[in-house]
Amino acid sequence: MKSMMKTALRVGVLGAIAASTSSAALAQSCDWTPDRAVTYIVPWGAGGGTDANSRMLATMLEQKWGVPFNVVNRTGGNGVTGHSAIANADPDGYTVGAVTVEINTMHWVGLTDLNYTNITPIGLIDIVPASVLVSKDSPFETIGDVLDYARENPGDLTASGTSLGGIWHLALAGMLNAEGMDPESIRWIPSQGAAPALQELIAGGVDMATPALSEGKALVDSGEVRALAYMHDTPMAALPDVPVTAEALESGWTLAAYITISGPEGMPEEISCAYQQAVEEITQTQEWAEFKESRGAEVVFTGGDELTAYMQAQDEALGETITAVGLAE
């Protein structure tokens, strides 16, 4: 493994968000390294996308720095428990965690007061657009068909993918709203995650699903479900033939969830920039690229101030959507 790391190919960074972090800012002393085990908090359960990405990163950080990175799944409260645990930990570099897009939604729906200013963003490691999936027997061929039908028969169609007010629900409601339709014109059927929602879709229990593209990829590949579109602005290598909503929809609506590695509030600059450098290097390895490709995702990295700005923009945009679809508290 070590030798593999040494000879790791530096691959060009794919994707829209390139790793163009201001390396000038990193020039200061970024040589902090941990000398004992680090706790890596994941606010979501084992087996999911956040867990997979974080465990991969934790293992590679472990190889890089030679101390254990222990992943702990702190689930609960639709992500609030884990995110609070990350935010409230000692900012000494020995606790980091996977802060996800929910940091930008949960305070709007009134679950918590916690927001992106309560953590120290280190690096963005994954972007997953929402997908628009129908069963293979569905009469709908394009996303336009679905929206036309829903416009004429509001409330007839059902969709699923996550809990009520979860990010994939916002993807659907936000899309309907952006297209000038009632966000309720396709009814949301809550589910405990993507797997039961996809099961419902296959069994004919719901008409469509809008889970993470990565969750639906295996079923799309196997032909059990068809992807009508995904809510992104640039086409991805994994599904070259499927249109992106930025082009397929008049409104140009897009929605992608993201996963970051972040530290607690007030993490010293020298620690966060050491992490940022390490993570950026890891995302440039061949091993990371292969991992990403297997999940149908693209290699992305954004760090530091750029990430903070990104999270801030997301926060405003999602806040608007949540208010518009009537889920705001």
């Binding site: 087996g47 997979a52 797997a195 296959i202 295996a218």
Partner: peptide
């Protein structure tokens, strides 16, 4: 289908996909 029946098979699907195998 590639639909995990439990969290163990969810992880297993991830591992298989990393090996370039798509369940289905």
């Amino acid at each position: 289908f590639g639909i995990p029946g439990d969290s163990v098979t969810a992880i297993a699907i991830g591992v298989l996909m990393m090996k370039g195998l798509t369940p289905g």
